[in-house]
């Protein structure tokens, strides 16, 4: 009799514990999601960015007449902040496609705006053109990882909606204007790109300990460990020297 009671007690404890664990688990994923913020700096003197000769297309020359364009491999703000660094969580194991916004990749004044688009896997994005000259938008993924395409966008063309199936750094180019060069950086999970003063915020991060990865073109990466509390904000700063 006593043994039976013990057994029942044991079973009910286990059941209770399991329920608790399940509840807790649910709480973890449903709790106020936190964020990771920070700043990315460039160390030392910024490299010289060559000006772009757009004489191939007089429209492009005219569009940039009072604001000559330069290459965008390393864009450093006056405060030393580094633009166009992609920040994401290394080894993301949370929900698939947490980024629900539809970012826009615009062809403006014969340049890509933004130069780099950080994307979650399967996140929809839009390619638009603001220019009165024809572009062709030609991403170059490794065909073993993602499927590439090549579409024309003459003046007034409707936006193109696309997404990428697998994580990859995908260069994108315009064959008509060979200086036009950018990247789609596709990662798993939440992603952010530094703004023009090197600041970033990764939203939608559930509480937990993560490795934040910072990527700068062509393929420099750095990592930092952070712990995000429920609804809280963690900080991770980086500094690149190339």
């Amino acid at each position: 009799m006593k043994r039976q009671r013990n057994f029942v007690a044991l079973v009910s404890t286990i059941v209770l514990l399991c329920c608790g664990a399940l509840l807790l688990n649910q709480k973890v994923s449903a709790a106020g999601e936190g964020k990771i913020t920070g700043n990315v700096k460039f160390e030392g003197a910024p490299p010289h960015m060559r000006g772009i000769d757009m004489s191939k297309d007089p429209w492009c020359v005219k569009a940039n007449a009072d604001h000559p364009q330069h290459l965008e491999n390393v864009v450093v703000a006056t405060n030393g902040g580094l633009e166009n660094v992609v920040l994401y969580i290394d080894g993301w194991s949370g929900d698939a496609t947490v980024e629900k916004t539809v970012p826009v990749f615009d062809q403006k004044n014969c340049m890509y705006t933004p130069h780099i688009l950080g994307l979650d896997v399967n996140q929809t994005f839009k390619v638009t053109t603001s220019d009165q000259t024809a572009h062709n938008i030609h991403p170059l993924p490794n065909p073993m990882i993602n499927v590439g395409w090549n579409q024309s966008q003459p003046p007034g063309a409707p936006p193109i909606e696309k997404s990428w199936k697998n994580p990859e750094v995908i260069p994108v180019q315009c064959n008509i204007h060979p200086w036009m060069h950018g990247y789609f950086v596709v990662v798993k999970g939440p992603v952010a790109v530094t703004d023009d003063s090197g600041n970033y915020t990764i939203e939608n991060v559930p509480p937990g300990t993560y490795t934040v990865k910072a990527w700068h073109e062509p393929d420099t990466t750095q990592t930092a460990k952070v712990t995000v509390s429920a609804g809280g904000s963690a900080t991770a700063n980086f500094s690149f020297n190339k």
């Binding site: 062709n136 938008i137 030609h138 590439g148 395409w149 090549n150 579409q151 024309s152 966008q153 003459p154 063309a157 409707p158 193109i160 064959n175 008509i176």
Partner: peptide
Amino acid sequence: TGLDGTPMPSFADN
């Protein structure tokens, strides 16, 4: 349809 693998894009949308 465009010639995939080359600079020739598809003009189907336009």
